[in-house]
Design a protein around this nucleic acid. Structure first.
Length: 876
RNA sequence: GGGUUCGUAGCUCAGCUGGUUAGAGCGCUUCGCUUACACCGAAGAGGUCAGAGGUUCGAAUCCUCUCGGACCCACCA
């Protein structure tokens, strides 16, 4: 027998009592993959509209972590929903070379294992090592992505260093260079001496720390600084223009002695100096401070670089040349102290700039780098800059960010964006497509012909290529069919912490290069924390590894725990207990299915709603259809949690706890049970693809669940009446069970009950078999009117009085107390309603339907209260 | 300094554009191995929705302030 034989041969008795994800998940994934349906070109049926998600490419460095797991769970949910919804659904996977991150990682491995640096190996050999590492790592990640059940199109998998993407990068660079948006210049940049590379502004992190604030006697001034060694490179001293104390010195050139060093500074006035802070005077170090650099440009100051790219003092530092920054600082401070030039030293809180990749302290310094001009007017944007354009597509609503509040953050970031430094002095990445020969410069796709051309040794910022991701992966700059079909993509789903790094840059690059938005909607999920809300980290030993939880509880349970109980853009805490809870749920779904499969004569898919034969049938169908409607709407609006909770509730509370129990006493349920199961599996599929597919196959389905069409909510039943009628039945059953428990009647004891209901006795009579079975009654008498049987427990509902005669066993004291409590509770509610309805303003201004509803509630509860009081009198 | 966000049952969280006697899961109590499921079932207990004002007929939901937690951006010379 072919592969499907596995399912055919299996008899219903063989269905295990407990669902075992580990045994089935891999083979189900394999079936999906072999079906080819991950590829939108191979999907069945006529599909006009495309739905595209570009998977945020995980870094080629590591292992799948819980953050990736959320992203995969959410995106797979959306893409499966859209695929079932008849869309040409493409989820394009890939990975990112992550220049600095990967190079840092490999350098560390190299050092730990062989004690060598990248320079010991040389560029070519080092890159070979990186490629080997990345190849292995990418393969690992790919397998882990599959473990989550991700239905992405592996035939379109891309890597940022692929040939095609490399061409896209070069093309983008050349186009922007030709348009004058990319330029090369000497500017102050964030320099990481450890990485020996520049960093973008947003790649710098800050660490709060206790530092020393040195007050240095500085000619006629006292200048305060946290970094004394940079004072060697001062070329000015700045004061606030309004500061009366220093007016006399403005414009003067002063020679300052700093112990073993003499410097020359000009006294300048600058608004940015806060007269209140420190001494109100600032030593200006143009080469090693962003702010000072700006001041130097404004005032035409000389620039002296005293710290080199290697983190050591340059020759300009005189006697300190060659020392590391740290050594220089202590030597310099000692020399100043010896010379009596230290006024005082204070402790101060300050922010240390550190490299986001390696944690080393950042040295701002001046360097010749490549930049993208974000403020230059662009002709095709009618004079707007690329930054204004990126703002416009969001303010105009072309791109919708969910949740909306991130709009503000996005705007703020873009409005303050400075030119983007795109060159990196690392080896791993896209080599800058620029060649030099003497004074000549050539920019192009490939090396120019002719002798003596040298390519720029630098590589591009990783985010430059990531910025092209939505379209470079679809064949750009060629005008490919994929690009036409799938771009702009539909949804960008990612964590909010990457909004600037990536989302904003994709918008800049796409609007400029393709003249299309990269995606229509951005859905930002929160970060996952541990059960106490702490970040997950190795040192806290609180890491939840999705691969572990998949092995232990299954991919479906892991997915549910990441999708339900969370709100967009909000961080969420996760614990193993939560995942365990969803494992239990998946098992519940399994067992409901097991029950149905064992009960029906021939398991099959039922897509047409069967005729309801009983009230219970009508009720469960009405619930199912309402559910379908609700879930569809909420999935369309990315309210995954709400949708999931609702299906959960239907599955466990309505189907399992009530309807399945009912089918044990009502006959002829095959069609309807199979219909409900069919629809339910479809609704659950985007959330829990594995278990639903596994059950689906047991329905002797020929096709895979993943390509079935999404259920339509066709509601024909008079739902309101059905729902309220069935609610009364449920209330009666619950009330009887409650009486039994409260009065400690043995669960097995069959009881007799009398129900009196003037308005609903017919309904209750019709449902008496059901009520008897569910409430474990021996006999049920239903009357339209009558009096309470003697010596009986009573429960008064709004539409029915229920009596359980317990001759000789009635505890009058207890029963009185119980009824009194009930009466008090209702009396309180009645008072509340009376007050509300006697409020003129309420009656005047509230909507009519609300008032009508309150009136009904009042009447019902007044009657109910009266009857309970009657009972109480009867007990006296 | 600017901004965002959270504070709802013991714990983890849902509650959309204001109208339910405020919900879920876990935990807890009391029963129960009723042939789908003990990864279960039945019945319960448990909350003045951080605090104080305000808008409104009506506020957990909107506004202001206070307190407490988290985060982002800027910046500290």
């Amino acid at each position: 027998m072919p592969k499907i034989g596995y399912y055919v041969v299996m008899t219903q008795q063989d269905i295990p009592k407990a669902y075992e994800p580990k045994k089935v998940e891999d083979s189900i994934y394999q079936r999906w993959e072999e079906s080819g349906f991950f590829n939108p070109d191979k999907l069945p049926g006529q599909r006009q509209r495309a739905f595209t998600i570009s998977m945020p490419p995980p870094n080629a460095t590591g292992i799948l972590h819980i953050g990736h797991a959320v992203m995969l769970a959410v995106q797979d949910l959306v893409i499966r929903f859209q695929r079932m919804n008849g869309k040409k659904a493409l989820w394009l996977p890939g990975s990112d070379h992550a220049g600095i991150a990967t190079q840092t990682k490999v350098e560390k491995l190299l050092k730990d294992k062989e004690g060598k640096s990248r320079h010991d190996l040389g560029r070519a050999e080092f890159l070979k090592r990186v490629d080997e590492f990345v190849a292995a790592s990418r393969n690992t990640i790919k397998n882990q992505v599959k473990k989550m059940g991700s239905s992405c199109d592996w035939s379109r998998e891309r890597f940022t260093l692929d040939e095609g993407l490399n061409q896209a990068v070069n093309h983008a660079f050349k186009q922007m260079f030709d348009d004058g948006l990319i330029y090369r210049g000497d500017r102050i940049v964030n320099w990481c001496p450890r990485c020996s590379s520049t960093l973008a502004d947003d790649e710098v992190e800050y660490q709060n720390q206790q530092g020393k604030f040195y007050y240095i006697k500085y000619g006629p001034f006292v200048v305060a600084t946290t970094r004394p060694e940079t004072k060697i490179g001062d070329t000015a001293v700045a004061v606030n223009p309004n500061d009366q104390r220093y007016q006399q010195y403005l414009g003067q050139d002063l020679a300052i002695n700093l112990g073993k060093i003499n410097i020359k500074v000009k006294v300048i006035a600058d608004e940015s100096v806060d007269p209140e802070f420190g001494t109100g005077t600032v030593g200006v170090t143009p080469a090693h401070s962003l702010v000072d650099f700006a001041m130097a440009q404004k005032n035409n100051l000389p620039i002296i670089q005293v710290i080199g790219p290697d983190g050591k003092m340059t020759d300009q530092a005189g006697v300190y040349a060659g020392l590391t920054v740290e050594d220089c600082r202590s030597r310099f401070v000692k020399d100043l102290t010896d010379a009596g030039l230290i006024d005082k030293i204070e402790e101060i809180d300050n922010n240390l700039s550190i490299c986001y990749r390696c944690g080393h302290v950042i040295e701002p310094l001046i360097s010749k780098q490549w930049f993208i001009d974000v403020n230059k007017p662009v002709k095709k944007f009618n004079g707007q800059s690329i930054k204004q354009r990126a703002l416009g597509v969001v303010t105009d609503g072309d791109i919708k960010i969910i949740p909306e509040r991130f709009n503000k953050i996005y705007y703020h970031w873009l409005e303050n964006l400075r030119d983007w430094c795109i060159s990196r002095q690392i080896w791993y990445g896209h080599r800058i497509p620029v060649w030099y020969r003497g004074e000549e410069i050539y920019v192009g796709q490939a090396a120019p012909t002719g002798e003596g051309w040298q390519q720029d040794p630098d590589t591009l910022d990783t985010w430059f290529s990531s910025g092209l991701w939505t379209f470079s992966t679809l064949g750009w700059p060629q005008s490919s069919k994929d690009l036409k079909t799938f771009h702009p993509t539909s949804l960008m789903e990612t964590a909010y912490d990457i909004l600037f790094f990536w989302v904003a840059r994709m918008i800049i690059m796409s609007t400029y290069l393709v003249e299309q938005i990269p995606f229509r909607e951005v859905y930002l999920h929160g970060l996952i924390r541990d059960e106490q809300g702490r970040k997950m980290s190795k040192s806290l030993e609180n890491i939840i590894d999705p691969l572990d939880t998949i092995a232990k509880y299954g991919a479906d349970a892991t997915r549910l725990s990441l999708v339900i109980g969370t709100a967009p853009g909000n961080d969420s805490n996760i614990s193993e207990a939560k995942i365990e809870g969803y494992r239990n749920f998946v098992n519940k779904l399994w067992n409901i299915s097991r029950y149905i499969l064992m009960k029906v004569k021939s398991p099959k898919v039922v897509d047409r709603a069967p005729k309801a034969k009983t009230l219970a049938d009508q009720w469960i169908l009405a619930e199912l259809h309402q559910l379908t409607d609700f879930v569809t709407k909420n999935l369309e609006q990315y309210n995954f949690s709400l949708a999931g909770e609702k299906i959960y509730e239907f599955t466990w509370s309505n189907l399992a706890d009530w309807y399945v129990e009912i089918t044990k006493s009502e006959d002829d349920k095959d069609e309807i049970l199979l219909y409900i199961l069919t629809q339910l599996l479809k609704l659950w599929h985007p959330f829990t693809p594995f278990v639903t597919e596994e059950i689906w196959q047991k329905l002797n389905a020929k096709e895979l669940l993943m390509v079935q069409s999404w259920p339509q909510a066709k509601v024909k039943i008079a739902e309101k009446d059905v729902l309220s009628d069935f609610q009364l039945v449920k209330d009666i059953v619950t009330a009887i069970r409650n009486l039994r428990t409260e009065s400690k009647l043995p669960p097995a004891q069959r009881l007799r009950a009398v129900i009196i209901s003037p308005t609903k006795h017919q309904l209750i009579s019709q449902q008496s078999v059901l009520i008897k079975n569910l409430a474990r009654l021996e006999e049920l008498v239903v009357l339209s009117k009558g009096t309470k049987p003697s010596e009986s427990l009573s429960a008064i509902l709004t539409q029915a009085e229920i009596y359980l005669p317990v001759s000789g066993m009635l505890d009058i004291v207890k029963e009185t107390k119980r009824l009194e409590q009930e009466a008090d509770r209702i009396a309180e509610f009645v008072t509340h309603l009376e007050q509300k309805l006697s409020n003129e303003h309420f009656v005047e201004r509230a909507p009519k339907d609300i008032i009508a509803n309150e009136k009904i509630k009042l009447v019902q509860n007044q009657e109910r209260l009266a009857k309970i009081r009657q009972q109480l009198e009867g007990l006296q």
